[in-house]
């Protein structure tokens, strides 16, 4: 067994939250830069220029990239040979989240669903974090993190199609979701698509798909081709940066596919805004 101190995890989580609040990851920055170079609409080009200037200011002056600093979302793979000393892993992640949000002057955005009361003084500052755990072989803890904003989450949708709908049905559904979303999710966006599994498995897969590096290809050539086809179709919608009209609505389409029930074809579309703040560490 490898022993990892509770405080080591708190500190590591705190550090990635502070970093992601102000520093746009290189894959997102590069994708935006390429979009600016290729965008045909002068209005959208100017919006992309502002977005990149914003990223430069945020990084240089350590200011949050966006006022919506998100809910903290984690995918955590825990090695079966790891023992945490001094507390629970979940508590360590939550504590690190709270500390990071406070230290970096990020916004506390969690509230009670109906009273809308902010939970910062009761449950904790921007707590609870959204954590998806998995247990794997090994003696490390693998943490993927993203700050997930509300605007892009609000346009995300899930459904269960009839199996006969097939790939064309999936494409149709995704196209409808992104068309309806229009300017609201802060395009150019990343589109995470979860296919198969059960209703909730598809939704979680669509979230996890957003954590993949922009510009990377799906390991299955058939899926890689499907991603490319969806990307091209979505960019024909003409929505453009911040919905001003243009040729670059989507930076990347990421699919995660799972085996599913013989009766069902679950599909979930989770959208990430242009400020795709995400990172990955191994402890």
């Amino acid at each position: 067994m490898r022993e990892i101190a509770y405080d080591t995890i708190v500190k590591a989580v705190r550090d990635i939250i502070v970093h992601c609040g102000t520093d746009l990851p290189q894959d997102a920055y590069d994708a935006l830069k390429q979009a600016m170079e290729e965008e045909k609409s002068p209005v959208s080009k100017e919006v992309l220029r502002q977005i990149l200037e914003n990223a430069d200011i945020a990084k240089d002056e350590k200011r949050p990239l966006c006022q919506d600093t998100g809910l903290a979302v984690f995918f955590v793979k825990v090695g079966d040979e790891v023992k945490i000393n001094g507390g629970l892993l979940k508590d360590a992640i939550n504590q690190g989240t709270q500390q990071g949000y406070i230290d970096a002057y990020l916004r506390a955005s969690t509230c009670e669903p109906f009273s809308r009361a902010n939970l910062k003084d009761t449950v904790g500052y921007n707590l609870p974090a959204i954590i998806h755990f998995d247990i794997v072989a090994g003696d490390t803890i693998d943490i993927e993190y993203a700050a997930k904003g509300g605007g892009s989450e609000n346009v995300s949708r899930a459904t269960v199609l009839a199996p006969a709908a097939g790939m064309d049905g999936v494409l149709q559904f995704v196209k409808q979701v992104i068309s309806d979303a229009g300017p609201n999710p802060c395009p150019p966006i990343t589109v995470g698509i979860g296919i198969g599994g059960t209703f909730e498995k598809a939704a979680i897969s669509s979230k996890h798909a957003l954590f993949r590096e922009l510009g990377s290809k799906h390991e299955d050539p058939q899926m890689a081709q499907f991603e490319e086809r969806i990307l091209n179709e979505l960019n024909k919608l003409g929505i453009g940066a911040m919905g001003m009209g243009g040729t670059k609505t989507v930076l990347g389409v990421h699919i995660e596919s799972n085996p599913c029930h013989i009766a069902s074809l679950p599909v979930s579309v989770n959208v990430q805004c242009h400020s795709s703040r995400h990172t990955h560490i191994t402890i």
């Binding site: 977005i51 990239l65 006022q67 916004r107 605007g151 802060c186």
Partner: peptide, 25 residues
């Protein structure tokens, strides 16, 4: 421009809460 919070925040020269401080942000 959505998501340009750092850039836009710099164009704000002063800020004063004038109502509903309990609403936080």
């Amino acid at each position: 421009t959505g998501g340009a919070g750092a850039l836009l925040g710099k164009q704000i020269k002063s800020a004063e809460v004038i109502a509903y401080p309990e609403l936080g942000p």
